[in-house]
Amino acid sequence: MIRIAIVEDEEKEASLLKDYINKYGETSNITFHIDWFKDALNLLDNYTPRYDIIFMDIEMSHSNGMEAAIKLRQLDDVVTLIFVTNMAKYAVKGYEVDALDFIVKPVRYPTFSMKFKKALSKITSNEDISIMVSRKGGILRLTSRQIIYIEVTGHKLKYHLHEETIEGYGSLSDLEKQLQACNYLRCNSCYLINPQYISQVQSHTVTMTNGDELQISRPRKKEFMLQLADLLGEGKNIKL
């Protein structure tokens, strides 16, 4: 599922964008989860990088979308950002915060669908693979971007996401091989973590963006830190 945030203080404009997103999803057989924020401050408060695309109004009554985008990029330089504005002059400034595009109001569906397709192409081109989770009652599909970390407890696997934890069955070692292309790391024998969601590493503890503190085992610490340093050195959009 692709997660989208709409930051727009006008309910009518936000509803229009939501309708366009759902219309595109129905014709393209894509499922979206959409959150609406009336103010950029509400988006940035306790922000975690859980969205794939953010539509950001620039001129809002209680906040400035361009200033909010600067703060957003300090927290998340991966999310695809699209500005929605009455003023085309802001387009140039958008490049300063790595905005993919901008849409001028009033938003028309043909223009929206063209730019939305461009955004979807960008996020699907990122390294992201599907994980089929075997669990009681059937199989659930997750994507590597959704997962903060995976934990093994006994014979069960726990997939820790932003808003829930899903239990399934399988081998953590098999998942490690499957997620190698996405640079997942083992900090000990119990955890396989998505480095995009590392908030802090201190001594023998790694803190994830959801606040969970995971232990780094002594035997794995050297390799873990070397791998993390390599990812940071390659500019893999990891912020500590």
Rank of each mutant, 00 (worst) to 15 (best):
I2C: 06
I4C: 07
I6C: 11
E10K: 15
K12C: 10
L16W: 09
I21Q: 11
I21E: 08
E26F: 10
I30K: 11
K38Q: 15
K38C: 11
A40P: 02
L41C: 00
L41I: 01
D45L: 06
Y47A: 01
R50D: 06
D52P: 01
I54S: 05
F55H: 10
M56I: 08
S61V: 13
S61C: 05
H62A: 12
H62M: 13
S63R: 08
N64T: 06
I70T: 14
D77L: 08
V79S: 01
L81T: 12
I82K: 08
V84M: 06
V84S: 06
N86F: 10
M87E: 14
A88F: 08
A88K: 13
A91I: 13
K93V: 10
V97S: 03
D98R: 14
D98T: 11
F102Q: 08
P106Y: 09
P106M: 09
R108M: 10
P110T: 00
T111H: 04
S113H: 06
F116P: 06
A119Y: 09
L120F: 11
S121A: 15
S130C: 11
I131H: 08
V133F: 12
S134V: 11
R135T: 14
K136T: 15
I139W: 10
T143D: 11
T143M: 12
Q146R: 12
E151D: 06
H162E: 06
E163W: 03
E167S: 15
Y169S: 12
S173V: 00
D174W: 03
L179S: 00
N183E: 08
Y184G: 01
L185V: 02
N188E: 00
C190W: 01
N194E: 00
N194K: 01
V201I: 07
H204C: 05
T205P: 03
T207R: 06
E213K: 13
K221P: 02
Q227G: 01
L231N: 01
L232G: 11
L232A: 09
N237Y: 06
